[in-house]
Design a binder for these strands. Sequence first.
DNA 1: TAACTAACTGAACGTACGTTCAGTATTACT
DNA 2: AGTAATACTGAACGTACGTTCAGTTAGTTA
Lengths: 209, 209
Amino acid sequence: MSVSKKEIESSVKDKELIEIRRKEIVNAAVDLFVRKGFHRTTIREIAQKFGMSVGTLYEYIRTKEDILILVCDYINSTVRMRVKPSVEITKDSTRSLKNAIETYYRIIDELQDYIIFLYQETKSLSHENRKYIFKSEEDMTRIFEDILKHGVEQGSFKIDEKNIPLMAHNIMVQGQMWAFRRWALQKNYTLERYIETQSKSILEQISAH
Amino acid sequence: MSVSKKEIESSVKDKELIEIRRKEIVNAAVDLFVRKGFHRTTIREIAQKFGMSVGTLYEYIRTKEDILILVCDYINSTVRMRVKPSVEITKDSTRSLKNAIETYYRIIDELQDYIIFLYQETKSLSHENRKYIFKSEEDMTRIFEDILKHGVEQGSFKIDEKNIPLMAHNIMVQGQMWAFRRWALQKNYTLERYIETQSKSILEQISAH
DNA sequence: TAACTAACTGAACGTACGTTCAGTATTACT
DNA sequence: AGTAATACTGAACGTACGTTCAGTTAGTTA
């Protein structure tokens, strides 16, 4: 689930309390970060938002960046946790893939503000912490890779072994695009149409004719 | 070319001098912004970088955001100015498209730091100014739309009229992805291979079999 | 009930940085 | 030469904000 949560230092001893308070922090921060951006949001606002004093807030984190890590981590695991259970590798690879795409794209639509936030604020993280985010994204990519691989083995898809990761990235980015290009896409297409069209053209590329 | 340059107020009268000084400002700022991000770069650094005093700098802009506008605008027109002359609509639509994709993707590779910067800092612009950036991006999209349209008319491509803009966006984003997913892609593929594979799968989707 | 500890408070600290402004240098005009 | 206008300078201003810390509250132990 969460990758880095446990690695952020805190001066509070009670592990359970840390868990609770950090959830409160994240809940308050996500909202503000997404609306105003990381830099424009102040510690004071975050603390105020859920009725905690600034001093106490600092008992649960070391720096403002820690909050950003918590938030990025939270967003990532939210997406992943929502995608994973609805994805299944069945015998009908085409159906599996279509289903995975639809699920993922719908979740992106729902969480589009979060997705855009990740695109924009990842760079505010230190090198070390950015790696966690990338890793998490690679995990997601692997979900699609697995479906593709399975389809190739079954003979439903025809993709050069070496290009499977690339294809997986394409599928993901074409979903995320729905969020970060919404100014163009959501003016001209409905989500349903978008999913349908993109699915079709993805399948066209890989189906073994 | 530049969209907003002329609309930023300046207390200096000499139009030509404004042009010159702003070029200096942009040159200094682009570099710093790309390396350190907009927020982390200070006015002082920018001024110092090309040996101008802070006071004078402020004769040519009103706020720090003005510099960001100038820089975003500069990056956009750089990309556009480099793509446009090498794109041509010939009788051989397939060749035209392949050529346009290769040109665009190579430029992205060269300017990848700039592309990533645009993705990340556009949000720091006010709503009004963001529209300029989007508009500029739509101009680029239209280049690809035109090639696609032409190919459809000629019978080389088979795309539903309504999906041409979407296809154009796909082509562009699959290029930009080379920059903002470099942590995954550039580890596993060379630029040449990337261009080849992506071109092929794009053409596969749209060629009239 | 005294002593100790853990959790919490918010005023105070320090500083970094965008912006201004009083003053200087340079050029143009009369 | 004297005046005015334009371009330039950088110290000074103000403030916003991340972080700290001396002190309070509440709970636990003995």
